[in-house]
């Protein structure tokens, strides 16, 4: 059994931290204990042996490999954002949630499409309503008067519609002969805007102060539109003439409401 004090002294001597007085003490002890002296020498040699270990140099690319295995985002602010994103993604990663999210996205997409369709439709209506080259949007207008026409030479129907301060006349007439259709109106408040043909047959148009005249023959289908400056009740007179003979005449009012 080696004395604890001897252990300390040998350690200190090998580590070169021994004081002169301790070194003297150690030498004296080793002289008196040959076994301890053998051990001491072998331990010194062992320590010297360690000096003979070759100094091995690492691979030239070790540094590169180390740097490549570092996650540099660990301490960057982007990482915090990424963590938030990861958290959000983890919420949506469940299968039920996935379906719910898909459904919600589908609904949103559907709403967007419907909004676009509705917007286009509204925009188109406005064009039709306020642009003098078009006819009023029928689906937004209300039918205010229907006039059935029956005479020996001509028959048909005139539908009068209104939206805001716009008036539309949808005219469908059947005749084998030439005729003139005249609409008289108050030019102080009303003005004729447009004629649009709803079939391939041609007509001729004549505009004057307070009236508009359409001349045609055969079966015709066309529309007329008027706009009013002020929203008041309007009086219209519808006449159909064959040559100079009046076949049909009707006066009617369209109230401002």
């Amino acid at each position: 059994m080696i004395d604890k004090n001897l252990i300390d002294l040998i350690n200190k001597d090998i580590d070169k931290t021994i004081s002169p007085s301790e070194k003297e003490k150690l030498s004296q002890y080793l002289k008196e204990n040959p076994d301890a002296n053998v051990l001491y020498n072998e331990l010194l040699q062992t320590e010297h042996m360690l000096d003979k270990l070759e100094d091995i140099i690492p691979s030239p690319n070790l540094k590169e490999r180390i740097l490549n295995s570092i996650d540099y985002n660990l301490y960057s602010t982007k990482k915090i954002n990424s963590k938030i994103l990861d958290y959000l993604l983890s919420i949506f990663s469940g299968s039920r949630t996935k379906y719910a999210v898909s459904f919600a996205l589908g609904m949103i997409a559907g709403l967007i499409i419907l909004t676009v369709i509705f917007y286009n439709s509204t925009f188109h209506d406005e064009l039709e309503s306020y642009n003098t080259s078009g006819t009023i949007g029928l689906h937004k207008s209300s039918l205010v008067q229907t006039i059935d026409i029956f005479s020996e030479d001509i028959s048909g129907r005139v539908d009068v519609s209104k939206v805001n301060n716009f008036y539309g006349f949808d005219i469908k007439l059947n005749s084998q002969d030439k005729y003139r259709l005249i609409i008289e109106f108050d030019s102080a408040n009303l003005s004729f805007d447009n004629l649009s043909l709803n079939d391939l047959n041609s007509v001729s148009l004549e505009k004057g102060l307070g009236y508009v005249q359409i001349s045609g023959s055969q079966d015709l289908n066309y529309s007329l539109s008027f706009s009013a400056k002020d929203l008041t009740s309007e009086k219209f007179t519808l006449k159909i003439l064959k040559e100079n003979r009046e076949l049909f005449k009707k006066e009617f009012f369209v109230s401002k409401n």
Binding site: I7, I10, N11, I14, L39, E42, L43, Q45, T46, E47
Partner: peptide, 8 residues
């Protein structure tokens, strides 16, 4: 100390 002894 034990390590040095064992290595020896």
């Amino acid at each position: 100390f034990t390590g040095r002894q064992l290595l020896k």
